[in-house]
Design a protein around this nucleic acid. Structure first.
Length: 420
DNA sequence: TGTCCACTGGAAGGGAGGGCTT
DNA sequence: AAGCCCTCCCTTCCAGTGGACA
């Protein structure tokens, strides 16, 4: 019996192992990061001798291999733990992505829970306890383990911007509070500005050592991509031409390896879908367009409803008038839309904050300007294709209906009637 | 030269919703 | 059940401001 899937199941895939072409995959060997790995290993090796390694700060732009190196080091630590059971002290490593876990409580609880012996019973709840108690528990657990704990805090700037330097203070003072165990903090970030804002004590404690990851050069990206391609794609389905192109395009983007790998994977997916045997340069070009769209679509669909509504207001205004948009105008349109949907109408202060956030996300540009006698405001413009934005917004059922029924003259009428 | 607009952006705090403890 | 705690999302309050206009 034939099914609609047969064509895809029976068709030859050009992938041997698609996972290898995911940016999150940590390969067996990391190319062109020997120097950084050695630096890190030199510092952390003190842990293997049972001494406290320095705290460290790893800095580098997106896609320079910071996270990959951290995970790679973690794996090496596991290896040596297994091999040398006679190590003076056990070394544990904990990896936390502070973009996801970005509260003081969350980070402490996460670290505490990684030392858990009895799931379900000893679990620190994700909320409910006083933070002090979580910290005490954490200390006890680490002390019981009586080893060296290496804590990787990835995107640590996010933690700081969200919750201040409390956690970093707690963690950096922990060694003085511990009787048996030792802790070393490794902060990872692509943003150095926040270190200036840290409490000087915390800054000096955390920044005992600093490693900077330089962006990859095009030739290095080529090696990395070729290595991944060999392990993930069928022989003959790619050649050095497309790898070169992916590497060159990513090198333009500050040597971002993540971008390069995504580019190759999506180009391969497109090739597959089109039923072609070999990745061509055209597939790569199509992939660049696809990636751009995907990024925008993902950002927008993750927004809370209220913020989507603000974005819709901007899109509608941007399409209807040739003039520059300002905050007050957006607020009035938003106000109309929110009422149409029977939603809570938020204050202008909240909307102003959301506009700034949309700017930071890169969906719009909001420039602070002064109109002299007529006040200060933000001048707002779409930074991405408004039609794409609309299409993504339509995936939300409420907004889809709203977009279908909305008429420009309704909004204008509303604005004139109500003096908001 | 001073005024004043239409906001901005920081700070503090409320309260809902999750959960723990006694 | 009452009393805590934490986070998240907002609101309220308010000082601050660049520059057109009188």
């Amino acid at each position: 019996m034939e099914t609609i899937f047969d064509r895809y199941l029976n068709g030859e895939s050009i992938f041997r192992n698609r996972e290898v072409l995911r940016a999150s995959h940590t390969p067996e060997r990391l190319l062109h990061r020997d120097h950084e790995i050695n630096q890190l290993a030199a510092v952390l090796s003190t842990a293997l001798r049972g001494e406290t390694p320095s705290n460290m700060f790893i800095y580098g732009q997106t896609g320079t291999g910071k996270t990959a190196v951290a995970k790679y080091i973690g794996r090496e630590i596991d290896k040596i733990n297994r091999r040398d059971s006679g190590l003076k002290q056990k070394v544990t490593h904990i990896y936390i992505n502070c973009k996801i876990v970005n509260t003081t409580y969350g980070v402490l609880a996460n670290i505490g829970n990684s030392f858990i012996k009895n799931w379900g019973k000893d679990l620190i709840p994700f909320t409910g306890w006083p933070t002090e108690k979580v910290y005490d528990q954490l200390k006890q657990r680490i002390d019981q383990e009586n080893g060296v704990a290496i804590i990787f805090l990835d995107e640590v700037d996010q933690l700081f911007y969200n919750s201040g330097d409390d956690v970093l203070y707690y963690l950096s003072t922990m060694n003085t509070d511990l009787s048996e165990a030792k802790v070393s903090i490794i902060g990872i970030s692509n943003d150095l500005r926040f270190t200036e804002l840290l409490n000087p004590k915390v800054r000096s404690r955390l920044g005992e050592e600093r490693i900077t990851f330089k962006p990859y050069k095009a030739s290095q990206l080529f090696d990395i991509l070729a290595d991944r391609a060999e392990n993930s794609l069928r022989p003959g389905s790619w050649d050095s031409g497309v790898i070169n192109l992916c590497a060159a395009l990513a090198a333009e983007e500050n040597g971002d390896a993540r971008k390069a790998i995504d580019l190759l994977r999506i180009a391969a997916e497109i090739t597959n879908r089109e039923g072609d045997e070999k990745i061509e340069e055209d597939h790569v070009r199509m992939a660049t367009v696809q990636i751009e769209k995907d990024v925008v679509a993902e950002v927008i669909s993750d927004l809370p409803l209220q913020q989507k509504l603000v974005l819709l207001a901007i899109t509608l205004e941007d399409l209807s008038s040739g003039e520059k948009l300002i905050t007050g105008e957006v607020y009035r349109t938003y106000n109309y839309l929110a009422r149409r949907l029977n939603m809570n109408v938020l204050t202008q202060r909240s909307i102003s904050g959301m506009v700034s956030e949309l700017d930071m996300l890169g969906i719009i540009t909001a420039k602070l300007i002064s109109k002299g006698r007529y006040g200060r405001t933000k001048e707002i413009e779409m930074a991405v294709d408004p039609d794409l934005v609309k299409t993504v917004l339509r995936t939300d059922q409420f907004l889809n209906e709203l977009i279908d029924t909305i008429k420009g003259k309704d909004i204008d009428g509303w604005k004139q009637m109500s003096l908001i």
